[in-house]
Design a protein around this nucleic acid. Sequence first.
DNA 1: GTGCGCAACGATACCGTTACCATGATAGCG
DNA 2: CGCTATCATGGTAACGGTATCGTTGCGCAC
Lengths: 363, 363
Amino acid sequence: MMESRHDRVAARSRRREPAQSTQRKPTMSDVARLAGVGTMTVSRVLNGKACVSAETAKRVQAAVEQLNYRPNELARAFRGQRSRSIGLVIPYLFDPFFANCAQAVTAVAREHAYSVIITTSDEDPDTEYAAAEQMLQRHVEGLVVIPSRFRQTRLTRALFGKTPVVAFDRPVLDPSIDVVLVQNTSGTRRMVEHLIEHGHRRIACLGLSRSLYTMNARFLGYRRAMQDAGFKEDAALGCESKEITLSILKDKLYGKDTPTAVITFNTLVARYALSAIAHLGVKVPSDLAFTGFDDFDLAEFTSPPLTVVRQPAQEMGQVAANLLFERIARAELPRTGNRIVLPVEIVLRRSCGCKHRTPVIIH
Amino acid sequence: MMESRHDRVAARSRRREPAQSTQRKPTMSDVARLAGVGTMTVSRVLNGKACVSAETAKRVQAAVEQLNYRPNELARAFRGQRSRSIGLVIPYLFDPFFANCAQAVTAVAREHAYSVIITTSDEDPDTEYAAAEQMLQRHVEGLVVIPSRFRQTRLTRALFGKTPVVAFDRPVLDPSIDVVLVQNTSGTRRMVEHLIEHGHRRIACLGLSRSLYTMNARFLGYRRAMQDAGFKEDAALGCESKEITLSILKDKLYGKDTPTAVITFNTLVARYALSAIAHLGVKVPSDLAFTGFDDFDLAEFTSPPLTVVRQPAQEMGQVAANLLFERIARAELPRTGNRIVLPVEIVLRRSCGCKHRTPVIIH
DNA sequence: GTGCGCAACGATACCGTTACCATGATAGCG
DNA sequence: CGCTATCATGGTAACGGTATCGTTGCGCAC
């Protein structure tokens, strides 16, 4: 048996000898051999550690160049218990709002020379959970997440162990996890108050299920403003498709107590509503004032230009990522989760009834 | 010295003994010990290999559950030479077109249970190169890339070695790399021909630098259509900002030979141009017919609704990713790069002068 | 001359997993 | 009854880096 082991070793050795000539990627010991030093010296040179003479370093550098050696990050991460990567879990990428968030996170990660592993959850708690688990198995050093359904999310401290996590745009149940949000409630409230100042009393809101945190928060802002003014609520929170939204709006506009103004709670629903309004031949803002939550690039060029609550998508991603890297750098105490709330702006264009030629922004 | 080594080993052993009680993640040997088997058996059970008795498998499963054991993907990838991850390099994420591409790629990767490492290149060849290199160091099994500047890109077969790569939206110089594109030239040409059918003779085009492949290809389509009709070209390919675009359009519209129609080569430039047109008080389409390349969600609701060439962003990402996974699965021969060109559609709304109530789509 | 500190470098173990053998047990067969 | 085929399982050696510790050589103080 000793025999066969020897044979194997010899075979292996023979296979590895002409490392650089074949396809195999050169390893540190190839470099070390060529430079006539030990692997530790190579490692030290590559990591810029002291205690290496200038001459030796030069020889190692030369060998690295000659072999076109690149360290194996997988091995490095594995050995060093530091993967230099973070995870990003996000519902969708085709919503420009989420895409902007993601862009900001990747930009911050690049500054830190970290890789980003990205997954879209499709707003599904199970997909989200699986994604988070896979990332943990890959030993990401931290996670940035836009959690899906608030009450159903399975993301907890217990799952993550000591891996830092930052949730943004929406919170998680676990209060020990950092959260970055925007002023959903007060933003919506101020928008509705603006409509009230225009003289509207019958204001409808259109959104998606309240099981989405942002929808609920925005609805609460709407409710608050309406209650304070003593007006009756008129909410439709099931605008899941263009067709449904059309039928909802048709009912509202052809029924009694027809609303004179409307607020949509995200860009998707705004699009559905706009489509319905065009189809029904309703004039904005004379027949119906129109406002939305979340600004988008072409809001200025719709007819009429849309008045919206603008939320700082990129800033939110940036703040969340920075928070994460802070926690990665300093694993110490503050176990209590931060809760950062970013301000929104009201962008007054003309769909609300304002006459401004150019947008007016209220902070 | 033998002494001290023994001490170390003993200390380590002591440290590891109460593995599950402390913070440390359980490893395969923890599971093996608890189940009273060897690590190989655990490995076999986890990978669903045969040659394990049902009863032993059950015991191992129980131990896995009890310790809440999850395999270390880093170690697995390192050992097995398969990282089960791919890289995605993309210019930006805040452009919805690119975001859609990215979404499609992540979706395909999820089907294959692969992770996606994402980087934005900001259209910078150096950033792009660094990103690709970092991903290779992480031993991704393949790369999907939207290359930046055509002529300046440093992405070559030599860099990638035997790691498969698929470029999409734009090609790379190296012809051995797979490419997925859309009909940039013929799409633009047909769009311009449509404007000509409307009776326009002086048609301007607005875009970015021809160093971007798509810009050049679209410009060539424009040129072809104009030449075939015997009309004079009127191109402005430096619309890098809102201000520049405004001054360009002002010059054109207040000069002689004022264009009666315009085509923009991407959504960004369309936005700049729309802004300028609004500022100058020009009426679309009566004063100036307006068309663009690349559709977007709210194109239907601008005033007037925009006529555009629609490119299949998601399909392109999907095709590219599928191509990559095919190459990953079968590393065999066809060394020659594929070149897939996806068809575009012309979406006729009203900015071109058409009177359609609802969009008409031409394939 | 002796002892000591320090710079430069190498040998070795180890990170957690799996490929590759080896082994023992059991069964089938002439 | 021996001999082989098969199954279930375990030991061991990698994968490619880095932490730890050890060794060597040299300068310097006493």
